[in-house]
């Protein structure tokens, strides 16, 4: 290859981000450029919140960022985190990209780097040792829940939030320091949740989706020949890449569900239609708050929300 991009990544080596998403990205850029551009993944160059600085200054050419790790910097990215979007992660990624192009981009929160894909993990669900079969049971539970939208929603549902880093989820549950965890379904295998959180309570669309972006160094992009730039823009960056990565998130969720169904003692409880409706009502108050917060940045948040919802429904 004429050009080898350096990818900086931070999740564990076995996580889908490193096991499947980067290989997919490399495959796509190689295919789009007839092998003239390739990339290699370097793990552990810096911690997750440092990735944007690394790319901005050219320490790496491409990276993945989780917007929740930089509170304050990213506000409009909360739009995809909202509860209530029903549909696959693939649909969510495509809708997210389109809403970004149409509305969210104006906030210019990724200034200094080139955004080449947007996606989110699947709707996070409550996973617990004791079975939870109704919304009311959530109140008073001690639950590991990440910050941002999820924290607000947890509080609205009456849960006691515990903040622990993701790798500590297993021991936190194993020791009963927490009763449950709100986490994407794809984590069931990686964190061995089938052993310590045998029950999963499924709300349509989940409690939140975590927002991710693939970012590229503007300088590294500018250094590529014009025909390569065009090929990448047309065949990889933006919607195609977002969709491909979204599909991998979806596949991870599907594997998590299959694993749960195949594991003795594990059970999936679907929320009743009444509970789902009531949840959507509670979620509505959180949504209103976030939409207001995002609108304060000057973008049309309501339009973005409607757009994501409609795009996903039409999938």
């Amino acid at each position: 290859a004429d050009h080898t991009l350096v990818i900086s990544s931070w999740a564990p080596p076995t996580h889908n981000i490193n096991a499947k998403m980067w290989p997919k990205f490399i495959e796509m850029i190689e295919e789009a450029t007839d092998g003239r551009v390739t990339a290699e993944v370097k793990l552990g160059l810096a911690e997750a919140p440092a990735q944007m600085d690394l790319v901005m200054d050219g320490a790496a050419d491409v990276s993945i960022i989780f917007h929740g790790y930089q509170p304050g910097r990213f506000v409009t990215t909360k739009m995809i985190e909202l509860p209530g979007y029903v549909g696959t992660s693939e649909a969510a990624a495509v809708a997210y990209w389109r809403a970004y192009e149409a509305h969210l981009k104006q906030a210019n929160e990724h200034r200094g780097v080139k955004v080449i894909a947007l996606h989110s993990h699947g709707g996070a669900q409550l996973q617990s040792a004791a079975p939870v079969t109704s919304l009311d049971q959530m109140a008073g539970m001690k639950v590991r829940i990440p910050g941002g939208v999820a924290t607000d929603l947890g509080a609205a549902l009456g849960m006691i939030g515990i903040q622990v880093p993701a790798p500590k989820v297993y021991e936190t549950l194993a020791s009963k320091a927490a009763d449950g965890v709100v986490i994407p379904i794809e984590s069931r295998a990686g964190f061995k949740l089938t052993e310590v959180a045998q029950n999963m309570y499924m709300l349509p669309g989940g409690l939140y989706r975590g927002s991710f972006a693939y970012i590229m160094s503007e300088e590294a992009f500018a250094a590529l020949p014009a025909d390569i730039q065009a090929a990448l823009e047309e065949k990889v960056f933006g919607e195609p890449l977002s969709r491909a990565i979204g599909a991998i998130w979806e596949q991870g969720d599907a594997e998590g569900i299959a694993l749960t169904e195949a594991t003795p003692g594990n059970a999936i409880h679907h929320a009743s239609p009444e509970d789902a409706a009531r949840f959507d009502e509670i979620a509505g108050t959180i949504r209103a708050k976030v939409i207001e917060e995002v609108a304060a940045t000057g973008v049309d948040a309501q339009a973005a929300y409607d757009m994501i919802r409609a795009e996903m429904a039409a999938w």
Binding site: V6, L45, A46, E47, P49, A50, D53, L54, M56, D57, G58, A59, P165, E219
Partner: peptide, 30 residues
């Protein structure tokens, strides 16, 4: 490694960014 020489301005810029973040992040590693 990033700029092709230890005097390369882009390479140094990249390296210093990495260094700066290591300084701030290591001390704040939970």
């Amino acid at each position: 490694m990033r700029g092709g020489s230890i005097f390369d301005e882009r390479g140094l810029n990249a390296a210093l960014s990495m260094v700066g973040r290591q300084i701030t992040d290591t001390a704040q590693d939970y």
